[in-house]
Design a protein around this nucleic acid. Structure first.
Length: 396
DNA sequence: TCTGGGGTCCTAGGACCC
DNA sequence: TCTGGGGTCCTAGGACCC
């Protein structure tokens, strides 16, 4: 089985069987379609609603085990176990793992270590060594040293392709080698990020548990089109849809922006002349009002539109986000915050209850989404969040 | 012949994460 | 025909201030 990226573009998750068939990470679907058909590979679109809901359920279980938790990504969390006696951490981890399995059906691995980098390493070891039954505890220094000598440095959290090359140039090959490097030399090659990494591998924490998610600094909505877009009205519909989504994301976090960057471009894979353009529209006053964002973004897109190209992707990017309460009011050309807030709340409530896109601004135009809306043609049911997609059981 | 010594802010680009 | 979508952090260098 494989799962595809947005727009059913590339294989981004593969079972062991799919990997054995030679399906590579990121393989374009159109290149492996025949193989999948021939070998009976089950192919699924991404199902973000399902992933988000299952993630929340798993984290709810974690919270029962440690109230001090950092949700790091959709499928990883850090838990503070410093109040748990070292000799009891392993059994707690096994208990947690089986509880998650029983209550959600999700298989997990647990890595334990004195720093976040070592916990990540422990998790990697747990995943790769079935004999450990999904739990690896690197609290003990001698146990740790033995494992670190057996893992290649490229597996270290924070070491990518460039970092791996630099560390090898310093003569390191394994994680243990990196831990024994002089932090100052690593800093010269990899800035302070590299120096922190060495300290973390030696059990000295440089990265704290971040229980409070800091308010985000930027927000983007960008999508490839289902098919190439060659006319302005279609592009403007996509821009309106992206602006609508952007407004939703900002409102959910109580943030506003006073400028939005619009971009669109042709595909780097297409023959012919490429075109990639962007422009930034300033707003009189920071806002998260969908109507304001939509018209500003559409105006900006009109300014840089040019016929004669087959556009593949468009997006909106905002930076310098500010909490609504801290946002400077405009002396001239502002908007009525109270009216806007009431209207947006009604809009969000409708769309939350009846599905995204139920109510959209008329300024977005008559919408025919088929040309540009992202493809999810093989999505599994949203079992846990949509009543009409729950499994049906019939008794004969 | 000779041309100071501090600061801050912004941006682009690189590197990394999931 | 067809190739994903988000994020964060760090540094160097330019531009500016007094």
């Amino acid at each position: 089985m494989i799962v595809l990226s947005n727009n059913d573009g590339c294989a981004v998750a593969r079972t062991a069987e799919a990997k054995a068939l030679g399906i590579r990470m990121g393989a374009p679907m159109f290149q492996i379609r025949d193989l999948c058909r021939r070998e009976g590979v089950r192919v699924f679109s991404s199902n973000y609603a399902l992933y988000g809901d299952m993630s929340a359920r798993v984290n709810a279980v974690y919270r029962d085990f440690s109230p001090r938790i950092e949700i790091y990504s959709i499928d990883e969390s850090f838990l503070d176990l410093s109040d748990v006696r070292p000799d009891q951490r392993g059994s707690l981890a096994r208990d947690m793992r089986s509880t998650v399995q029983r209550w959600t059906g999700i298989p997990t691995c647990v890595g334990i270590g004195p720093t976040r980098t070592l916990a990540k390493l422990a998790n990697h070891i747990a995943k790769k060594n079935p004999g450990l039954s999904g739990v690896c505890d690197l609290s003990d220094a001698s146990v740790r040293a033995a494992w670190m000598a057996r893992v290649e440095l490229a597996e270290i959290w924070g070491v990518g392709a460039a970092g791996a090359r630099k560390l090898m140039a310093l003569g390191a090959r394994t994680v243990a080698d990196v831990a024994s490097l002089d932090p100052r030399r690593v800093r010269q090659a990899m800035t302070v990020v590299g120096e922190r990494l060495v300290h973390e591998l030696n059990g000295h924490a440089c990265l704290d548990l971040e229980q409070m998610t800091p308010t985000r600094k930027g927000c983007a909505v960008t999508r490839s089109f289902a098919t190439r877009v060659t006319d302005l009205p279609t592009l403007l519909q996509a821009i309106a849809a992206h602006a609508t989504r952007l407004g939703e994301k900002l409102r959910r976090e109580g943030l506003v922006t006073d400028h939005v960057t619009v971009f669109f471009h042709t595909s780097p894979h297409d023959p012919g002349t490429a075109r990639s353009v962007s422009t930034t529209a300033g707003l009189p006053e920071a806002t998260n009002d969908t109507l304001v964002l939509t018209s500003a973004a559409q105006d900006a897109a009109r300014r840089i539109w040019k016929d004669g190209y087959r556009y593949a992707k468009a997006g909106l990017i905002t930076t310098d986000l500010v909490p609504l309460a801290n946002a400077q009011r405009a002396l001239i050309g502002g908007y009525d915050r109270e009216r806007s807030a009431a209207l947006m709340a009604a809009l969000d409530a409708c769309n939350a209850r009846f599905g995204r896109g139920t109510v959209v601004p008329a300024s977005a135009g008559i919408v025919d989404q088929r040309a540009w809306a992202t493809k999810f043609e093989m999505r599994s049911p949203r079992y846990t969040t949509r009543l009409d997609e729950t499994p049906v059981i019939r008794a004969a």
